[in-house]
Each structure stands twice: as C-alpha cells, then as structure tokens.
Design a binder for these strands. Structure first.
Lengths: 189, 189
DNA sequence: AAACGGCGGAACGCAACCGTTACGTCGTAG
DNA sequence: CTACGACGTAACGGTTGCGTTCCGCCGTTT
C-alpha cells in the first residue's frame, strides 16, 4: 500500500515546483528532492511528468467553488468577483495558472484538463448567474452569457494574473459597477 | 561585421522556438539548428539565452501600434478592439505572449521588458482614449482610465489568449457595446 | 518469527544542452 | 592578391535529467 504521507509530500512539491520553475522546466528529480523522497516513490505512482501533473492539478482544482446565490445579480457579481480575485491573488495560484494556460496551447492533454476543471465550471457559473438575473428581470432577455463571463473574468484575470497590478480597495467596486452597467443596458444583440 | 541575414534568421528561429516550446525549454542549440547557423554565430551576438530573448522581443514589440483617433470614442474603441483582436489571433503572438507573461512572474528582467513594451504602451493608449472621450463629453469626468483599460483589454485577452475560444462575427460588436455601456454610465467612483 | 512491500539511496546507460575552443572555408575590403 | 573576419563544423568537459534497476532498511501483516 502506497503511503499517503509520501503522496501528499509529492503533491505539495509538485505544486511548489510548478510555481517556481513552471511546467516546462519541472523535473522529476527536482520534485523528489524537494519532497524528500526517492524517485522510485514517484515512478511507483505515475509513469511520467505529464501524467503526474495532470492528476495532481485535477485533484487540486476539483475542489469546487460554490455557486453564489445572494438573491440579486449585483450581490452575486460582487461575491463572485471577490472569490475570483482572492483566488488569483494567492501566490501559487497566480503563478501556476498562467503557466499552465500557456502550456495548454501546445499540449492538448493539458488543454483538455484545464478546460474540464476551469472553463466548464466558469461556464456553469456564468449561465446560472445570468439565467437567474434574467429570470428576476435584472438583465435583458437577450444577454449573452458568453460575453458576460468574459466581461466578468477577463478584467480580473488580466489585472491580477497578467498585468499583475495590485488592486485598491475600491477597484472591485468600480469594476463590478462597470460590468453591471455594461450588461444591464447595452449588451444587446 | 556581423552578417545581417544571419541575424534575421536567428531572430525568426527564436520567435518560432519560443512559440513551439516556450521560454523555459528554449535552448541555444535548437535555435541554431532551426536557423541553420552555428552556435558560434549566436554566442557572437549575445552571451545568454535571456539576453538574446530580451533583445529580440524588444525589437519585435518595438514596432508601435498607432494610437487610434477616429473622432468618436465608440469609433476608437471599435478600432482598438479590432487591432488587438487581430494581434491576439496571430498564432505566434498568442503562443508567445502568454508564455512570456507567465515567465515574467519569475524573472524580473523579463517582467521589466514586457512592462516597458506592452503595459506602458497600453497605458498611453488608454489614457489618450479616455482623455479624448472625456474632453468630448462622451465619458464622465471621473472615469478611471485604469479600469477602462482593464475592461477593454481584459475580456479580449481572456477570450483569445487564455480560453482560446473563437470569436464570432458579432462578438466584437457586442463586447464593444458592453464596454461602452459600462464606461459611459456606471464606472463612477 | 518470518514474509511482504513500500521506502530512500545509489548507480546505471543514454540523451540533451551548456559555453568554449580550434580549424578550415569563403566573401569582401583594402 | 592578400589579410581579415564572420561563418559552419566538430569536439571538448561538465551538468542535468530521463527511466530503470538493485540494494538494504524498516514497519506491518500474518
């Protein structure tokens, strides 16, 4: 029986290595070194780097974020933005996610995995949020959930994970107000 | 005197290699192979992989995009979005940019260079656009150019370079309408 | 008490790449 | 016609990582 403490140590080491050197430079030997285990312990669990990383990020990202439902679209939006911005401000996450996203452009398996654990979930959140808002009459019926998701997540991702600019206290408020305005009035087909 | 055709061949090879394997895995030997030159020709020009890449991306990105000025904010916005979306749909650009962005998180020199060639320019564009629009009375005076830039570039970058979803004919129109609405009415402090 | 199995460590042969050097070729400037 | 200098090729010793194998240790199971 594989020892669980060893598995956990490896998992943590992989996340740290991913953050530090990225997928491209990640090496099994470095993971073993950092985890304080032998290479054999790793090869006993996975047969290569890709399989190992895919399994681990699936496991980590699998912890679903609860869908917000505060009763109003504005409330949902604020909450969602708070959750996302918190997540993207975690040091490890903000290093690993853009790195894997870039890697996904060349590796179909990584792309598929990320799509599964991130994009699908986002889409669900977006559709639910927009659907509820339309049902309540807070948004026009022809609001495009696709555009809405891009409008909500794009600026945050851009700011936090790409430009890496700090956000002030009022930034989230301004942003959510802007998004709200854009969807409410003018995202017509 | 260093031969210019060789320099150009190397430059192209670096860009292709960056797109294909990313900065992390880029090797001098692979660049030389692809360019059909000897390693010596490369080391005669630069002393490092980092130095080489920095010089080349600076050169490439240095070709400035002209600031749009169509006479109306809506027109400027449409034009800017068209330019950016075109750029982000180029295969090589959409591979290299996210990769270098991710790498920038670990390498201060890359971060600085990208900041110089991308962020600074964006900021200038954003400030000019918003400034003009305010002067014309098309946007409220307290519009935050920072938020505006994020709102304009974020969704496009997210969609094209991160999620890598194709955009339909009407997507840009919808998006620009949404951004316009958000800035015009509700990005108040 | 004995057998089993996961463990770390060490070493294996192999491949890629580093940055440097020596050499011979070839085009061009003088 | 000569000298120079950039070029490609090849080889250098050294490092890193691959994936595999063998070993001895040690806790658990039986």
């Amino acid at each position: 029986m594989l020892r669980n403490d060893i598995t956990v140590a490896i998992r943590n080491a992989v996340m740290s290595e991913l953050a530090e050197v990225g997928y491209g430079r990640l090496s099994i030997e470095a993971v073993a070194r950092r985890a304080g285990v032998g290479k054999t312990a790793i090869y006993r669990r996975w047969s290569n780097k890709l399989e190992m990383v895919l399994e681990i990020i699936t496991e980590v990202a699998g912890r679903k974020v609860p869908l917000p439902d505060t009763g109003s679209f504005a409330g949902d939006l604020d909450l969602l933005m708070m959750i996302v911005s918190k997540a993207l401000q975690h040091r490890v996450a903000s290093q690993i996610i853009p790195d894997l996203m870039a890697e996904a452009a060349r590796n179909p398996q990584i792309a598929e995995t990320l799509q599964k654990v991130l994009r699908t979930h986002q889409q669900a959140v977006g559709e639910k949020l927009v659907g509820q808002a339309i049902a309540r009459g807070e948004l026009p019926e022809n609001t495009d959930p696709d555009v809405a998701v891009d409008l909500i997540l794009g600026p945050l991702y851009w700011r936090l994970a790409v430009a890496r600019q700090p956000i002030g206290d009022d930034y989230l408020e301004k942003l959510s107000a802007a998004v709200l305005g854009s969807l409410r009035g003018d995202a017509k087909k």
